[in-house]
Design a protein around this nucleic acid. Structure first.
Lengths: 206, 206
DNA sequence: GAGCTTTCGCTACGACTCGTAGCGTAATGC
DNA sequence: GCATTACGCTACGAGTCGTAGCGAAAGCTC
């Protein structure tokens, strides 16, 4: 969360229940009010805590919403469906399911927009959300290499850039489809997308 | 802009100079302050108009910023570089150049985030920004078909979904690379991306 | 020019949110 | 018991919002 490293040794400890209540109240307020109309005073009232308690734990609205939304990505896992294509389709559907939830839709884009002018916030998002997604790409590639569906590493530098490219293409396409085009990520779209992506990678590598 | 259809016939006409001054002031404020700290009062002062004039023309901050950012996309054009791959690379580089400008970075993501809970705003963004980009995809496909690089239409419905898919992949990847990964869209990245995209399309269609 | 219509700049206003300070109280470790 | 920290509560100045009201300015029609 905010400062898990520094462990105070004496005095009254911070209520862990308050943390979860605040984050849940934040998601609830995101659903009902959206980002712009969400106020910290309202979140405090919903959570049953004082407004000052909120400010003692989070620097502001941005940091609070990042933490509230980040837990939604805990459920992201890489399913083992037997083939690379099926694995990719499974992850994309999971990612799309998270983005379909209103608290994620309202919060994610807003904090990313804020992070453009706030380097610390960008780092926070990167650690608690982005890196967790990127790990799935790395896992999927390693698994496909073990299956023989992908060739092993050639140059470590080039492999890293390829992972970055894949990650931007997958996450970018799903986000754009969901939040900009405002159209559903259904089975058909996922299959067509996966076919283009994997077909392109095979054509580019081979 | 706001209500171009209704044309008043008598009385003092609205100052067109004020419009451009306000939009320019909005972009200037976006660069200096970013989305969250941008206030309409400040924009009015920068533009040299009264705050009430702003509210007479735009419903609020969202609509104003959409119009201010939309003009940045006027310069988007489809270059004729001879091959489909070169055309795609050219458009992607143009798109990335726009997203590299701070006024676009600060404003675009924020209004898209707001549009999630505001259908009218989403429609406004779609007409003045998204549709303009999508037109380039249609043009590029038609040109590639004339060159023989792409097969002519099979089913009109399927062709439309393919265009949607391509559009989400191109725009999504560039936006994600620029605003989430915060890494530059340079020549190398564009070439690798284009190779994967076109290779995948060829593999999926053929 | 006279008269009508609409816009413009300006001021002021209530309502709201922000983030903080101060205080007394509650909960822990030593 | 004592020091230390967290908590709830209240109050506050500062800032923004969006609107109302006014007189003046700028166009069109006759």
């Amino acid at each position: 969360m905010q400062s898990r490293t520094t462990a105070p040794r004496s005095g009254r400890p911070r209520s862990a229940a308050a943390d979860t209540a605040i984050l849940a109240a934040t998601r609830e307020a995101l659903v009902e009010l959206g980002w712009s109309k969400l106020t910290l005073g309202d979140v405090a009232t919903r959570a049953g805590v004082a407004k000052t308690t909120l400010y003692r734990r989070w620097a502001g609205k941005n940091e609070l919403v990042v933490d509230a939304v980040a837990v939604l990505f805990d459920e992201l896992e890489l399913p083992d469906c037997g083939t690379l294509a099926a694995d990719v389709e499974g992850v994309v559907l999971q990612f799309a399911a998270i983005l379909a939830r209103p608290e994620a839709r309202s919060g994610l884009m807003a904090v990313v927009a804020e992070s453009i002018r706030d380097e610390a916030l960008r780092e926070r998002i990167h650690c608690s959300i982005v890196e967790r997604q990127k790990r799935l790409v790395l896992e999927g590639r390693a698994r496909a290499q073990r299956r023989g569906e992908l060739p092993p590493e050639t140059h470590p530098g080039q492999a890293s850039r390829t992972v970055d490219l894949i990650f931007d293409m997958v996450a970018g396409a799903v986000i754009h489809r969901t939040l900009v085009s405002a159209q559903p990520v259904d089975e058909e779209w996922v299959q067509r997308f996966t076919a283009v992506l994997l077909g392109g990678l095979a054509a580019a590598e081979g």
